[in-house]
Each structure stands twice: as C-alpha cells, then as structure tokens.
C-alpha cells in the first residue's frame, strides 16, 4: 500500500508500532477472525510486558489448544504450544525446573476450565508461581462454536442447539476459592485496565488469574445474533461495573447480563516452591540447599 493510496490527512504508514518487539513478526498476520478479541488481549499483554520492564529472555509463555492456544506462538518469548488443557502442568514443570523464569499461561476458557479444570484448581491450591490469563469467549472457537463451561445459560451453541441449560463456571470465584493470590476480570473494552492487571500479574509472586472477556464474533456472537465485535464491546461498556474487591461469589455471568469487572483478590501466600524450601530447611537444618537459590 503506497502512501498515496491512503486517504485522510496525517495518516502515516509506519512499522514502529510499540507492540511489535513483543511479537514474532515473522508469524504475523495471525489466524484470528476480524473482531476477535484475543488479539486485543495480546496487545494488552505486549504493553504489560513493556511496562513491566522485564527482560523478555526471562519470561516464558505456555498455551494449550484452541484459538487462544495460538497466543504463545505469536509472542516473541520462549513459547510453548502444548496439549489441550495441559498448559498449566507443563508450565508447572518449566517453572520448577527453572524458578528464575516468569512463566505465563495464556489459554482459553474451554482449555483451562473444562479439559484443564483439574490442573487449574490444583495449581491455584498449590499457589504455583504462574500468571494465568484466561480469554473467556464462552465458546470453543477452533472447533466451530460448541458449548463451553463458561457458556451462559440461554446462549445457543452447536452442541446446545436449543440453548444452553447447564450452569456455567464463575471462574474468578473458582480461582479465589482454590487459593489464587491475585484474581481480576476485565473485558477487551477495558484495555487499559486489562494491561495494568497483566502488569500486576507479571509482578505478582504466586498463582495470579486474569480473566479477559473477549468477543467471538464468528461463532458465539453470530449464532446468538449479537452482532459483530464492536457490538459486543458496546455491551461490555454498557453493562460492566467496576467493583474492585468484589466478593467473587457475586461475579457470575449471565447471558448478555451485567458484568462485574475489577481486581477482586490481591493477597499474599507462600508459593509452592517457597513452602517446600522453607519446610525442608527446617527438616534438614544446615543440610538442605534451597532449590532454585
């Protein structure tokens, strides 16, 4: 596209987009559909990395399978695209073998809370030092729009063709109940908040959980006649209330209903590794070398 072909004044073609150094530019453009919110969360994550000031060599990202599972492969980090639902246990091994790494798990709601649900609750229980970003779009996008554990009641999906009658997960409540030390939810309308939460998650020691609500215009929105991505962001804007410190049991989602966003949990608890090191130092006085030191 030549400069002349552009319309409007003051519009420059430039490649120095501040997020590009955080992306594998040789893999772009990405595979996500027009209006898919995953790319916006990645944009926020790139800015969180930038603002964190962390050395990119010290950060690793692990994804599972699905549309959001592709995130790892687009980040200019040591990146791991693992199996469906198993990003968290992979990340657990990576983190424990090299505790100096900041390990980020970045995956979708189906991946993390259905097939990966067991790993999710146990990593939170152990307070494994991982930052978990869950892009919640209420559907299985990669396979064509099936019901997820987060699909609100009443929404239609290909495997709930007459509307979903299952009770969905309230993921912040689940993470909180299992012991996560940082729990936040934002939408891709709240990009500044989301980027800040990710920055806080990167700095937080222990299991941090950030849920990012994001539209899936191709499958979830279209099947439910909700319009395009912009329409979903307008919904997020209209129906979201920021309630930092909200009791997570009250933040469940309903079909196109009110959304409570905010930083719900921010507390301190020893990580699994700190607990192990502290305990074994007491058990073996003078003999045990703390792991990772």
């Amino acid at each position: 596209m030549s400069q002349e072909a552009l319309e409007g004044a003051g519009c420059a073609v430039e490649s120095d987009n501040p997020v590009l150094p955080f992306l594998r530019q040789d893999r772009l453009p990405h595979i996500w559909c027009p209006g898919c919110g995953i790319g916006t969360t990645v944009n926020c994550f790139a800015r969180a990395l930038q603002d964190s000031g962390m050395k990119l060599d010290d950060v690793a990202i692990v994804s599972g399978i699905g549309c959001t599972g592709r995130v790892a492969g687009y980040m200019n980090l040591d990146s791991f695209h693992t199996t469906h639902g198993r990003a968290i246990p992979f990340a657990t091994g990576l983190k424990l073998a090299n505790p100096k790494l900041k390990v980020v798990v970045y995956s979708g709601d189906g991946d993390l809370s259905a097939i990966g649900g067991n790993h999710f609750i146990h990593a939170a229980r152990r307070n494994m030092d991982l930052m978990v970003v869950c892009v919640t779009n209420h559907t299985y996008g990669m396979t064509g729009g099936q019901t997820a554990p987060t699909t609100p009641q009443g929404a239609t999906q290909t495997t709930m063709p007459y509307g979903n009658f299952e009770n969905p997960f309230n993921l912040p409540f689940l993470a909180d109940a299992c012991g996560a030390v940082y729990v936040a939810r934002w939408t891709v309308y709240h990009v500044r908040h989301l980027a800040r939460a990710m920055k806080e998650g990167l700095a937080k020691k222990g299991f941090s959980f950030i849920e990012a609500l994001a539209p899936c215009p191709t499958l979830y929105s279209r099947r439910n006649k909700l319009g395009d991505g912009v329409e979903q962001l307008k919904y997020y804007k209209a129906k979201s209330t920021i309630k930092n410190g909200a009791d997570t049991k009250d933040v469940g989602l309903t079909f196109q209903g009110d959304i409570i966003v905010g930083k719900f949990v921010d507390r301190e608890r020893p990580t699994w590794l700190d607990s192990m090191n502290g305990h074994l130092t007491k058990v073996f006085p003078g003999k045990f070398t703390p792991y990772g030191s």
């Binding site: 027009p34 991505g229 912009v230």
Partner: peptide, 19 residues
C-alpha cells in the same frame, strides 16, 4: 497527536473507530 496505520494487516473490526 496522530496515528499510524498499516492498512494491509487491518481486518476492519472498527474497534479503533468506535472507541
């Protein structure tokens, strides 16, 4: 201020325009 656009990677979602 100003903006820079890379038209060839845009998918026309209109998030930027709307918000």
């Amino acid at each position: 201020g100003t903006v820079s656009v890379k038209p060839e990677v845009c998918k026309g979602c209109a998030y930027c325009i709307e918000f």
